[in-house]
Nucleic acid binder design. Structure first.
Lengths: 357, 357
DNA sequence: CTGAAAGCGCTAACAG
DNA sequence: CTGTTAGCGCTTTCAG
């Protein structure tokens, strides 16, 4: 009893009785509030969480004390005992890619609305980096994660991880994954692009692709090939690289140097398509007159490019928001069946594609 | 003693003696490890943190136990007692703005290298939202924050906050702020733009500006006016709005409808400039032949626009990285003098500006 | 070199 | 309706 008394009276002194020297300021705690309002800590906690009835007068007194002291609950302490951090991790390849920036925005907006904090990691499509972020987030006890997975290189670990904490895959998945997903229909989308080009009379159509280990790249390639075959065409002009502008430029440069260059190019994302435009400009190949180009994603800059880019549109913001909503749902009811949302791609015709004359 | 024994033997049972029903799995704790290795929890903690000497045999035994159990320290518990979360908050207006996406990348890369997690908030340049994120991050006990502040509306609260936790302002600041900063020289930058235009023979130069309460907008406007005056010109053609593409389009549309429209436009960022290009296209005003446009920031898409945008370049990635480094330094030595880094703007001439014939 | 135990700030079971 | 108190998982004295 004496010991406890001492603690309540002098909470700011350490065992030696000296005030801690570093940082004079120390945020008020439940104990400070309870002392100020002359109630027990339990009561303070309860007015905070509304977990049980507290008489109006007591409540008011406590709230006044809180305000006066500028009390804010320490979320870390809450997390420790509640076993919930109210934080979710997100790992995407690169925020500097507008598609993922939008996607992140979508996720953040819904998560913030539910009082979750978003902690971020850019994997650069590197399975190692991705794994490091996931591990780090796990140690930090995030309640869940949203990830645009780089490859299936770490699939074992991911699957293991997902058993322990909520996880939804967005934009990209891997086989063996059976949890929640929000994915585009990449094969269909690429089909749309090919159909458009074929309808315009193109026969020699090339594919400028991203990192071949990514599920999006695989599926877009598959869609490309399938669709060409369906039209009785061969899929020979295929390049792969990374999902970057530079790679797009390089791949296109390469293709345009062919004895029989393509008359049209499908790029697996808009960055690649923009790179293709640059490569064409280098060689003085006119787009769309001499080369049609279609992109994928419909980032904001697609319509600002010259010529305005025909592309396969995907609602990045919505995909992020949907992934976040799915995560929230799973957090609320861990037992529910997993859900697989697929968002439909849409062809947006602008000025970078034109009929073969 | 009996009580303690019980705890060590049955740590996974709650007070009623029933196993918790939810989540069969529970991560191993120091206690589990200590039991498995037959040492005290203190020893386990010490092999983890190397805080004191532990005999090689004991250490090995503990490490084996850790590995066997798959033990990972609980960062939340560590944070609570160490009073460090190894997390930093970042609030920027919008990741979907490539300038800030790059900046965020820069910060994240250096922070991740130092084992800090980055938690994110988009303020949309809304002082309220910004304040909410800052409060939230504070409750979450972040070790520090990097913020591109919206306005001085909440400056009181911000200053108060900064007394308690490390904070560096990036890209934007407010008067009264005397802490660490990484800022561009906006006035100088705008001067560069104006000089360039004047040298090309332009006399009727308009300013398309962003949110007037932002320090960047104020300074860029000031630089614009000062520079024009220095050339003996009046600064009459000034519009303000938001730092978005749409706003740029709108402001420019408005200006071009004037009886005496400008022959050149300074836009306070590239998004605005891109909007200006759109507005010009609408009216069939040729850029640069009939209207020169210069942007600000030099986002990746500036050189992809048509025409390629002349702009004032700022190293967004480096600014983010520098801010993160500053924060790390302050975290390491809280007493150090605050540092004010200013990054030099650079004129990049491309195709959107041309001499008046 | 090691163990015991007191907390970090909070929640929630238990006992009035 | 309110107070007491045992922990959450970890670190860090203090005592051997």
């Amino acid at each position: 009893m004496n010991r406890i008394k001492r603690r309540r009276d002098a909470p700011r002194t350490n065992r030696r009785g000296t005030r801690s020297r570093r940082s004079a300021y120390r945020a008020p705690t439940v104990r400070d509030v309870s002392a100020a309002a002359d109630v027990s800590v339990g009561t303070v906690s309860h007015v905070l969480s509304n977990a049980r009835n507290v008489s109006p007068e007591t409540r008011a007194r406590v709230q006044r004390a809180m305000k006066r002291l500028g009390y804010k609950p320490n979320r870390i302490a809450q997390s420790l005992i509640r076993r919930r951090t109210m934080a979710v991790g997100m790992v995407i390849p690169d925020v500097a890619n507008p598609f993922f920036a939008e996607l992140a925005r979508g996720a953040e907006d819904v998560l913030a609305g539910a009082d979750y904090a978003l902690v971020f990691g850019n994997s650069d499509n590197d399975a190692h980096k991705e794994r490091r972020y996931i591990d780090s987030f796990k140690e930090r006890q995030v309640d869940g994660m949203i990830v645009a997975i780089a490859s299936d290189a770490e699939s074992k670990a991911i699957l293991e991880f997902a058993k322990q904490t909520a996880m939804v895959l967005v934009d990209r998945a891997f086989k063996d994954w059976s949890g929640d997903t929000v994915l585009g229909d990449n094969s269909l989308g690429m089909g749309l692009a090919v159909n458009h080009l074929v309808e315009l009379g193109h026969r020699r159509i090339g594919l400028v692709n991203g990192d071949p280990e990514l599920s999006t790249a695989k599926q877009r390639r598959a869609g490309f090939e399938r669709s060409l075959h369906r039209h009785g065409l061969e899929a020979r002009l295929i390049r792969e690289g990374r999902f970057t502008l530079d790679s797009g430029q390089e791949q296109t440069r390469d293709m345009l140097a062919l004895p029989e260059p393509p008359t049209a190019i499908c790029a697996a994302n808009d960055l690649l398509a923009l790179g293709a435009l640059l490569a064409a400009a280098e060689r003085n190949v006119k787009v769309p007159a001499e080369l049609s180009v279609v992109g994928y994603d419909d980032i904001a800059y697609a319509r600002l490019a010259q010529p305005r880019l025909t592309t396969i549109s995907q609602p990045a913001y919505e995909m992020g928001a949907a992934a976040a909503r799915l995560l929230l749902q799973r957090l609320a009811s861990p037992g529910r069946r997993s859900e697989h949302q697929v968002v439909a791609p849409r062809l947006v015709v602008r000025d970078s594609t034109v009929g073969l004359r």
